[in-house]
């Protein structure tokens, strides 16, 4: 059996860290957790769904990650339990796409079994609308038109919030100035693609 590298508190720290290696290590630990997988399989059997445990686990982990990175989750000893609760909710909802996830109430004092059973009292999942799904699918196709390096620059700047010096180092560019030019160029390219896409016109107007 694999030894867990992170305890509950360390899982949260690693996922928030912004360091790919640490974050991936933490997410992998959750994904490979046999107890969580077995619980999910129990729920699948109980509620019935065509999706397999791995699919459920993936979506659950992505939502859990969002909660942690948006500083909404601070329960220092309930990461695994909460993840099981999220997955249970996803199974009951037949793995519908979620556009927003939020927490309500204080669940830190509740015991694990009751938390999973009553997860609806603490978890808010807003289902993605058909329009939002359409929007995301269009954006994904636009992203494919950017180069790998461009996508990497945008991720480092706008998702990882790295400085230009750090981006220059990661992208092996000469200096921060070059990194800034690369980021600005890539961002402009993405903006142009969005603005030129007719199917996104209504989103830009704000009518959707």
């Amino acid at each position: 059996m694999e030894r867990n590298l992170y305890d509950e508190r360390q899982l949260i720290t690693a996922i928030k860290s912004g360091d790919d290696k640490q974050q991936n290590g933490a997410l992998r630990q959750l994904y490979m957790d046999k107890v969580i997988t077995l619980k999910i399989k129990d729920f699948i059997q109980h509620y019935g769904t065509k999706h397999d445990a791995d699919d459920i686990m993936q979506e659950g982990i992505l939502l859990m990650r969002r909660l942690i990175q948006e500083d909404k989750f601070s329960g220092n000893s309930k990461v695994r339990t909460f993840l099981i609760g999220i997955c249970r909710n996803l199974i009951r909802g037949d793995l519908k796409k979620v556009t927003r996830v939020d927490l309500k109430g204080d669940f830190t004092a509740i015991d694990n079994d009751n938390l999973v059973e009553n997860i609806d009292d603490y978890l808010f999942l807003e289902e993605q609308t058909a329009t939002e799904t359409k929007r995301d699918n269009i954006l994904k196709t636009l992203l494919e038109q950017l180069t790998e390096k461009c996508r990497e620059s945008l991720k480092l700047k706008y998702y990882k919030d790295k400085t230009m010096v750090q981006i220059a180092e990661a992208r092996q560019l000469k200096n921060a100035n070059q990194a800034k030019k690369a980021v600005d160029r890539c961002r402009q390219r993405l903006r142009d693609l969005i603005q030129q896409e007719p199917q996104l016109a209504d989103f830009l107007k704000g009518t959707l």
Partner: peptide, 20 residues
């Protein structure tokens, strides 16, 4: 308004890229 919406779409695209 259009600038804000464009910004929103950019952010969403970058988030989607990360999830991909």
């Amino acid at each position: 308004k259009a600038e804000v919406n464009l910004h929103r779409l950019e952010q969403q695209a970058i988030k989607l890229q990360e999830e991909q």
